[in-house]
């Protein structure tokens, strides 16, 4: 049963007078519970595809269906609600809010729910525990190491129990030991039923995933 259906997706950017074809005719189905790696050279369109599937960037043409919802038929506010409910992002630069503590950053997706503060705290502390950062929950992002910030970002992505996690090169700036810990964490989450789509450059990371797809010059090249 496929959770995500990408159908005939094209994406082009107008740069000056020229039109850059970032993605051409992408067709892709991703099943519930998959841990998928998206690979390809720099500039091939990985981030673009990820943000289209994540409901952040509308494609120039084509459709995206997630859980039978025609995602880009939604207006921008419904799209925000959709992201809130279905999607968690782990950004490459972690993208934590600098003036919020680790705990507050993790609570962020819950701030726009009607959950009472106490429940929000408990949920946030539970996921911080899962990523091993409960003891540093009151630190600001600039008081945490890169790997720790990355884990806070993961905690924030999963706190609202989304169906899918999108991660763009989550191990890019980590040393191999920290990267391994992160992939183990992803694997645990995946075993709990979370669908994970991860952009990566690193062939070694393929050991952790169920499936890898390759993209070159905006075209999918599924390699066994």
């Amino acid at each position: 049963m496929s959770l995500i259906k990408v159908c005939e997706v094209n994406k082009s950017y107008g740069v000056g007078d020229k039109i850059v074809e970032a993605l051409s005719n992408i067709n892709l189905e991703i099943n519930q519970g998959e841990f998928l790696a998206l690979m390809g050279p720099s500039g091939s369109g990985k981030s673009t595809l990820l943000s289209i599937i994540g409901g952040l960037t509308p494609p120039t043409s084509g459709t995206l269906q997630i859980d039978d919802i025609d995602v880009y038929a939604l207006d921008s506010e419904r799209l925000a609600d959709f992201r809130h409910e279905y999607v968690g992002f782990v950004f490459q630069q972690y993208q934590l809010i600098p003036y919020l503590t680790a705990l507050e950053n993790v609570m962020l997706p819950l701030a726009i729910t009607s959950r009472p503060g106490k429940e929000q705290r408990e949920m946030a502390l539970t996921v911080l525990d899962k990523v091993g950062l409960r003891s540093k929950s009151l630190r600001l992002p600039n008081q945490l190491s890169g790997g720790e910030q990355n884990r806070v970002a993961i905690a924030r992505a999963i706190v609202n129990r989304p169906a899918i996690i999108f991660a763009d090169e989550p191990t890019g700036s980590l040393d191999s030991k920290t990267a391994k810990e992160l992939l183990e964490l992803f694997q645990t989450l995946n075993k709990d039923g979370l669908t994970i789509i991860m952009v990566t450059h690193n062939e070694e990371n393929l050991a952790w995933v169920n499936r890898a797809i390759y993209i070159r010059d905006g075209v999918l090249a599924q390699i066994p």
Partner: peptide
């Protein structure tokens, strides 16, 4: 970040 997280 707020918007990506799903803030309206």
């Amino acid at each position: 970040i707020f918007r990506a997280i799903g803030f309206r």
